[in-house]
Design a protein around this nucleic acid. Structure first.
Lengths: 171, 171
DNA sequence: CCTATTAAGTTGTTTCTACAACCAATTACA
DNA sequence: TGTAATTGGTTGTAGAAACAACTTAATAGG
């Protein structure tokens, strides 16, 4: 028989809260963006990533890695964004397997409009509620969890943090 | 125009990691339960809640609140669980609007079998990766986030024990 | 009482995601 | 050089969730 190491009361209580957060957070991030800008949180993330890329353009595989999405999922989302005129697709001339997604002007405007809404959510839900110590601690905790969830660091999150913010670039 | 308070580099970096976790965590919790016991994480939570209730029975509205689900979502899930013989529905004799969900013996066995798998996931993803200090800090951080996500404390999760978040001893 | 309102679930529709199968372009290599 | 394996993406389908509309039961107000 394998003996199960059950959770202590404190471990259990903290885990349950984390579980509830995991359940409620997606909707909390979606709703303001949906209501005010007709974007899901995932669509916003996709547009924001493109807005930071050189030429506002990225291969789908790269974009998929940076948005934690599978390729089929991203492919569908990009097609719908293209239908709405926020993104265009093209084939790379260097490797004709590669599809490039490019943010249109309309897409750029949409993400610029939406960024303040999103930042407000993020501040309201977490950042503005934490002390400096807690923020630092949360950084270490997320590192520990990502070691399990993204063991090969495919998202490159351990790199030194650059100053890129999801808003128009200030030269 | 309202001025937007953008995120500092540290705030942004921590937030991005949290966002990635929020994206990856559901699948990480689903997969072991799906593979080994043919249950989604949400189904497991539903069965686990029923297993702790008196008579293994709960009204759907209560169950919905305790699983952070909407009533339509829960209604569909319970119907599918009933189709699989893990749950039965009945009408309350005291209020005939109320539907009671009861865990069957098969449902009980399923949740007992599955619990070690789930606990192993939870330990592997978070609990066993944190120091005692970090676990305590995470408790305070989750309290802060739940204040935004569940402002009326409908889940009764925010304990009275530590009012102010005590952070590690250093000024 | 009798109607209006609220509460508890259900059902149907649309949207999204995961998964699998598939195709096309490129690379490896014998 | 020719064939196999790999890479990048697309598409079809089936399952789950959000949302709205609906039904039925209980309660409140006049």
């Amino acid at each position: 028989m394998d003996e199960v190491r059950w959770l202590s009361p404190e471990e259990l209580h903290t885990w349950v809260k984390l579980e509830v957060i995991a359940e409620l957070l997606p909707a909390a991030l979606d709703q303001p963006l949906q209501r005010e800008h007709n974007l899901t949180h995932f669509e916003y993330i996709v547009l924001a990533q493109l807005s930071e890329a050189t030429d506002r353009t990225m291969p789908l595989t790269v974009l998929a890695a940076r948005t934690s999405a599978t390729l089929p999922r991203l492919s569908h989302v990009i097609r719908r964004l293209e239908d709405r005129g926020l993104v265009v697709r093209s084939t790379s001339e260097f490797d004709r397997r590669v599809t490039l997604a490019t943010l249109t002007d309309a897409g750029w405007e949409r993400v610029v409009e939406s960024a303040p809404t999103h930042v407000a959510s993020v501040r309201d839900i977490v950042i503005d509620r934490l002390t400096a110590d807690q923020l630092r601690s949360l950084g270490a905790i997320t590192d520990a969890m990502l070691a399990a969830l993204d063991p090969d660091d495919r998202k490159g999150l351990r790199r030194v943090c650059d100053e890129k913010a999801p808003h128009p670039p200030s030269p």
